[in-house]
Design a binder for these strands. Structure first.
Lengths: 236, 236
DNA sequence: CAGTGGTCTAGACCACCGA
DNA sequence: CGGTGGTCTAGACCACTGG
């Protein structure tokens, strides 16, 4: 009922989104051309063009004139904060990335994890704690709890060569994310892992990623305040 | 030369932006209807529609079907961070806003201000320092330097009834903004003004706003980490 | 009611890419 | 070269708003 009353371009968008979020079309895959979608939906090309153009503006796909449309490698949050790989981020700045895996284990879900991940109390949950280094200097402590339902092989991954973000992207398409940014003091353990003082202020990003019906993981990302800042620029 | 080769919809967008950033059309003013712009530029309505639709997506104007298009009250940065009034923000949460003006004075530009505002060394610059309270609790320390060229009457404003953001919006249309978000310890004076401990981490937003050819002001906004966080949500 | 924006069509020309 | 996306037109119908 209600679906059929949606604008045609919204129906095209919904279809493409569904293919991406369900994993049928993976990052890097090519999206059908405008003329193909036009025939599939029986609408004019302008309508298809609008749909795909808006998806490109939202960052879900990338378009190249003369070449085609492909599923984007990563997805934006509000166009400023990106759920992206710290490895790529560091490489993009022309620096080298390395990491130390501090923990990789199974823990038992306490009430906080029940809330965050939607698993039963006492259920097994994967936990990883990794320090990411940029040119040998610690810039991020990644403390992550992963829902085994979406990434059953999480504990067997070699996180020296693959980051958790990379692995989770590949195993469970991102459909939703919630985040908060705040300033906080690191815990004693966090300060030690990052090699900073206990009172040094840190930028803390807490992020829950959702894949379909499951919460895929909850991450607490701690950045030393002296070594990291979010920057932006805006022009009318 | 190059201007005439721009797409028609870009030319319409540029025209509308210019009217807004130059202050000819103020916040709340109605923008000419699509049919009016269509005749003015000699293009089809779809082209005008695209131009104005994109401006609405960017947050510059607000559209109401059946009513018309009006210039938006405030402008977004990357759709997450908004250059908006803290007064409105607090009111929107259903709380009461008040403030204490700690300083309102003329200072002499040092080298940092020369860099930031683009004024000559030793030139007079307005300076205000205001603590904003939400339900009586300090949530933001606003330390601002203002270019006298864009707001000559800045020192005579009653900041108990008008916030600096409100006044600057009205006197100098925003055309550009640069910002950074980081975690830092407050200075001794900042901690005292906010009524927090010297070692409490704070979220610090530094923002430069540009109006036309001038940098209008530079603001350092300090939020106690325990009382403020930026939150967001993102769905595919 | 007349005017507004929201959507849609069936064409069209162009610049660009890869083979 | 054929296929791609980028842009544009001159109409059209609709839902909504205001007087």
């Amino acid at each position: 009922m209600s679906v059929s009353h949606l604008p045609a371009y919204e129906q095209v968008k919904t279809f493409v989104k569904a293919q991406i979020t369900s994993g049928v079309w993976q990052a890097g895959d090519t999206v059908p051309s405008e003329s193909a979608l036009q025939q599939q939906f029986g609408v004019s090309r302008m309508t298809v063009n609008r749909a795909v153009k808006e998806l490109a503006a939202e960052g879900l796909v990338t378009r190249l004139r003369g070449s085609g449309t492909v599923v984007a490698q990563w997805h934006r949050i509000s166009s400023m904060l990106a759920v992206r790989d710290i490895h790529e981020e560091v490489i993009e700045r022309g620096h080298t990335h390395s990491c130390r895996v501090l923990r990789l284990e199974v823990v038992v879900a306490d009430s906080a994890l029940v809330q965050a991940l939607g698993v039963p109390l006492g259920a097994p949950v994967f936990h990883s704690r990794i320090v990411h280094l940029e040119d040998g200097v610690a810039i991020q402590l990644e403390d992550r709890h992963v829902n085994p339902a979406v990434a059953p092989d999480y504990l067997t991954v070699d996180f020296q060569t693959t980051t958790p973000t990379q692995y989770l992207f590949a195993s469970a398409p991102l459909t939703e994310a919630r985040y908060s940014i705040e300033a906080a003091q690191p815990s004693a353990a966090e300060a030690k892992s990052l090699g900073i003082g206990r009172t040094e202020p840190c930028l803390v990003i807490t992020r829950c990623t959702v894949s379909g019906a499951h919460v895929a993981s909850q991450a607490r990302l701690v950045y030393p305040g002296m070594r990291y800042s979010l920057r932006g620029n805006f022009q009318l």
